[in-house]
Design a protein around this nucleic acid. Structure first.
Lengths: 213, 213
DNA sequence: GTCTATACATCGATAGAC
DNA sequence: GTCTATCGATGTATAGAC
């Protein structure tokens, strides 16, 4: 790891923070330079353009998420457990790439039209397919409701997980693991109160089934 | 309603569409002018600045939502029903102001720092308080779970509702009313399948309780 | 009311000294 | 590798003719 690589990483992470905080178009290369302690022109020694910084940022994040999703799927658990693991994994990756997640969330529409970001688009389609297949498997084996379109449930759980980066502080009193359990618990079992023992013990998705030991 | 007012409305709605589609900073006043069939300079006969267009757009939307929320609260129903009505109302207002909702979602971070948008900020705080009070009332009277922080549930349901404008097409085969019922049903009762009759009939939030007749 | 023309700032990016 | 200096494009907004 040479010193030049460190600078490159610093530019990358600083730009990510600014893009996420103030928006992609509202962030100028001069602001990035100021934040890393370089003049804007010097950035072009490391990156050919502002868009190249964005592209590398998102590609890294989406690659990371695909690798982690593949591990979850390889465990070959039942749909409800797989869904729970996808939530946990997504929150973990978001914690490792906090800004990239927000950038993709906020600037997604822009990148769908932008040429040169096809790689980002196909990676995003992969992610969607992963979620959808698990949800459809659960509908097929009877562990999930069939009266809700899989795409609708996919949107709800994906938005809940992905948007949590906007308000959740991983280092606060409400840890990421607890958030993952609460999201899974609400979306699978519901928020309405119910008496203990009102569900059959052999229920495939009892409230504790998807809590880690 | 003079002809000038019509033009003003056209500029407002056109700008809203562009802001929502391509992003606030990615939209130029020239593009707005082109879209309404005016030269960019002529826009300044109707509005003092680009930001003034944005401000009026969001203020109208947030005012509309506050009026409608007040009506829902005035009905003074039980928490679960009120929550359901807030979901329906939010989706209806989003349908009437489809672009403003998206703009606020996407550009919210920017406006929290921007001076001159204090009115937008206080209106947004009002909206949040409305949801939170209903959720807390439900936790207090025992109809909602107490093991989930109200703020967490608030974020989940708000994000689910507000982000649906990104993917839901009100004029498609999946109508807005159905979406409202499905969101309420999942978030209150859960997505996991369960046998009929596994819940007591006097359950305050049985699956059909918050379905309109 | 709308257009033509343009002021003025700021943007991303480049060239060349050091 | 970083800086100085600056180019050309583009952004918001204005001035004045019509």
């Amino acid at each position: 790891m040479t010193e030049g690589q460190d600078r490159r990483e610093l530019i990358l992470s600083t730009a990510a923070e600014l893009f996420a905080q103030r928006g992609l178009h509202a962030t100028t290369v001069r602001q990035i330079g100021d934040a890393v302690g370089l003049f804007s022109g010097s950035l072009y020694y490391y990156f050919p353009s502002k868009d190249a910084i964005l592209d590398e940022l998102l590609t890294r994040y989406l690659d990371a998420i695909r690798v982690r999703y593949a591990t979850v799927l390889a465990a070959d658990k039942r749909p409800a457990e797989t869904l729970h693991d996808l939530v946990v994994t997504s929150l973990e990756v978001a914690q490792e790439h906090p800004h990239a997640q927000a950038i993709y969330q906020n600037e997604g529409q822009f990148m769908r039209e932008m040429p040169g970001f096809e790689q980002v688009q196909t990676a995003a389609a992969d992610v969607q397919q992963t979620w959808l297949r698990v949800i459809e498997a659960g509908a097929a084996d009877g562990s999930f409701r069939r009266d809700i379109p899989p795409r609708v449930f996919y949107r709800l759980i994906r938005d809940a997980v992905w948007l949590s980066v906007r308000w959740h502080r991983p280092d606060g009193p409400y840890p990421t693991r607890r958030l993952a359990e609460d999201i899974t618990s609400i979306l699978l079992d519901g928020f309405a109160a119910r008496d203990a023992g009102d569900r059959p013990p052999d229920d495939p998705v009892s409230r504790e089934a998807h809590l880690l030991p």
